[in-house]
Design a protein around this nucleic acid. Structure first.
Lengths: 253, 253
DNA sequence: GCCGATTTGTCCGTATGTATC
DNA sequence: CGATACATACGGACAAATCGG
């Protein structure tokens, strides 16, 4: 259970929406009444509602109210806005995860690798290839680079378990944030070898740079996803901005 | 210029970061001092900083400070909905956008289309195919469905210009939010016909459901992007999970 | 069209908790 | 331990948008 009150209230409201207590199209009770029901301040309630907006559960309208736009889907989705390890995501959707180490080595970042990863040339890193399965199906091929000075002692054995658990609990590395970019790339020979891709010759690639509490980018990972099992969700809110009168069509790309 | 103060302060700080006044790895001045410099309340400053976190410019650390992690290399300019399509980034570099209407018709949603779009079966919609170019290169093929009762009077001529301008200014439709999902799909014959895809047989697909101020989903658009010109950005913040917080090894001292 | 009630948006000041040094 | 810095929470005030009389 989260300790922060706004998070608790966020979950309470999320529960009520998912359970159908606040059905789609219906307006939620006003801030005033919710404050009374949930016994919190206005700011705290508003912060919880802001989270609901961010995940696309409700829309707020000044002068009108807060409308539920949640539609039950049941899809297995990887949500945005939080860093989840592969194991955590799999657990959330109750699938059986497993993984296999394909390759582990220690190397020095050269100019070409520096361009791709963002590590400075000359940086010693561990290079790791891992294959992730869901329900015994190979779905994700990971190429990871970890700065050795931050992830000292990382071995193939540790990587076979949870790397993040090792970093956070053994090495006391605090993981703060992760910049991610989704692109589509041509499949390599390695992709075709390990991922059962039928006749698709492209896949979804999530490149991420992860930072620790010292502001050091200590991990670069390129996750190559089987195209048929990739899904990334987002909710965009339109902000009335005076500059976006004639342009900025959020949906028209 | 935005009217909201927190947005102004956000832009000021963003400017300073981009200009190198707060270089990477450096800590920003403390909240207290920034409040004095910018003449605002703590809440307002914190809201601006929260935006900087969301777009991946800084990381906040309790007890330590706010560290700049902006890297000018990738020129990763943000977008409001945390999506960065090639069209938007290219538009900023003053590339020339244009579009062509391929198809326009009026039809009734059947069961199969209902499954794909989320519209109820029997709903009258306008169906629209548009091809978007950048510097005369076809990059995005759009399939759009608009509810006729919300977008009354929409024609191919209007669609050749700005649909959203027509909706907001002529029909007074308020556009609130848009749920989007990114997937990778096999290219269709239509994709291959219009997008110059070399030998790629997949493309990036952004499916979006857009809602108006009445909570009505009035638009479903499937944007099919040329794989080599697609880019979706995000910044994720890690919240300490109960599991990782549970067993924290005490420091030896 | 006007006015007041309701509802959300913004901004402020303050107090307290928690992590870091 | 104290000082500093960010995180959370509360309450109040006013603005802006909506709706009904």
């Amino acid at each position: 259970m989260p300790k922060a009150k706004y998070e608790q209230i966020y979950r309470i409201l999320k529960e009520k929406i998912e359970s159908g207590l606040y059905p789609p199209q219906a307006l939620l009770p006003s801030e005033h009444t919710l404050i009374g029901e949930l016994d919190c301040s206005r700011n705290t309630l508003r912060r919880a509602v802001a989270e609901l907006v961010r995940v696309g559960y409700v829309q707020t309208m000044q002068g009108k109210g807060v409308r539920c736009i949640f539609e039950p889907t049941g899809q297995a989705t990887f949500t945005l806005g939080s860093i989840e390890s592969f194991a955590e995501s799999a657990a959330r959707i109750h699938w059986h995860p497993s993984s296999k180490i394909l390759h582990f080595e220690s190397l020095i970042v050269d100019e070409a690798l520096s361009q791709r990863t963002g590590f400075a040339p000359g940086t010693p890193v561990y290079y790791l290839q891992r294959l992730h399965y869901l329900n015994n199906r190979p779905l994700i091929l990971n190429h990871s680079y970890f700065r050795q000075d931050v992830t000292r002692g990382l071995t193939a054995e540790i990587a076979a378990g949870s790397i993040y658990q090792y970093l956070e609990q053994e090495l006391q590395v605090s993981i703060i944030n992760s910049k991610r970019v989704v692109t589509v790339e041509r499949a390599t020979a390695l992709d075709l070898q390990y991922l059962d891709m039928a006749d698709c010759n492209c896949l979804a690639v999530v490149s991420s740079q992860t930072y620790n509490g010292d502001g050091v980018m200590f991990e670069y990972t390129q996750s190559r996803h089987h195209p048929n099992f990739f899904r990334f969700q987002d909710n965009a809110v339109r902000r009335p901005s005076p500059a976006s009168r004639a342009e900025k069509k959020p949906n028209d790309r």
